[in-house]
Design a protein around this nucleic acid. Structure first.
Lengths: 153, 153
DNA sequence: ATCATTGCAAAACATTTGCACAGTA
DNA sequence: TACTGTGCAAATGTTTTGCAATGAT
């Protein structure tokens, strides 16, 4: 049963349970379902859109949007999800199960393209140490117009 | 009168007036005062804090916060100001009169340190062209703990 | 004179919180 | 059992919008 397909999710789940235990928090269906929905739908979610998806997928649980917010905040504090903010609408979240990457965002269609930035990281470390700054994370977003939208113009 | 001190502001103002004219928009005291206040107080502003400062400085104009928002949005669309968003509170804006730079943000005290990133830009262009993406701008924010706050810990 | 802009208040969003009840350990 | 989590609705915070009056060209 525990085939390779589920290994990654299982390890996320174990990590989540660990975090909960270490903080004297409880493992609940709602928390599990929020994590699982993010995993099964590999995208960038707004709290609202994740909420809709969770409700559609698990209507019997009757999950409230407050719980989605609470769970996302918990997951973010525990570094299991990352948030991006751009544009005028609120944040978007993604599950941190992929290797580190950054984002290119199309101004016209809001599409998000992920890319890896081997090499830029080193430069960032250099800059930070120059200012005595202790780096914990970074956000790099490139804005512009994607291939498709360039054709439309 | 037009000494070197004011040249930079004057050129901003000319640019602003140009933008207004090209869009059939009008040059008003309120719009001018928002721009001027940003220029005179070289910082990163939330719309709210800029509003307070404008009211303090020009109480007789009785500028409303809606106008501050409208002006900031206008200035941003015209690329005269840039916005950063981070944390859970809203956006911060800065006037785009400095050479391009990025930001280091302290997680503890929210201080913003600016730095220049000669060299990273080239890499960004490379990445973008690999995806057929037409780059118009970018955002790079390094998060961590600043020198002062490290000592406090 | 014409048409955009303004301040105000209300509306629209986005997110958080208080509380009584339900669920986990 | 003890205590945390939950949904709900209300509260909060941020940004936008409709409107009648004002101001710029």
């Amino acid at each position: 049963m525990a085939d390779i397909e589920n290994m990654e999710y299982d390890s996320l789940l174990v990590r989540f349970k660990d975090i909960l235990k270490h903080n004297n928090l409880k493992f609940t269906k709602q928390r599990e379902v929020v994590l699982k929905t993010m995993y099964n739908n590999d995208e960038h979610f707004s709290p609202e859109s994740l909420y809709v998806l969770v409700k559609e997928t698990y209507p019997e649980l009757n999950v409230g949007i407050a719980t989605v917010y609470r769970t996302l905040n918990l997951l973010e504090e525990s570094d299991m999800v990352t948030s991006l903010s751009f544009g005028s609408s609120g944040k978007k979240f993604e599950l941190g199960n992929k290797p580190h990457h950054d984002h290119m965002i199309c101004k016209m269609c809001d599409e998000i393209i992920e890319f890896e930035d081997n090499g830029i990281e080193k430069k960032q470390e250099e800059i930070a140490s120059k200012y005595g700054f202790k780096l914990t994370s970074h956000l790099m977003q490139l804005y512009g117009i994607c291939k498709k939208c360039q054709k439309k113009q």
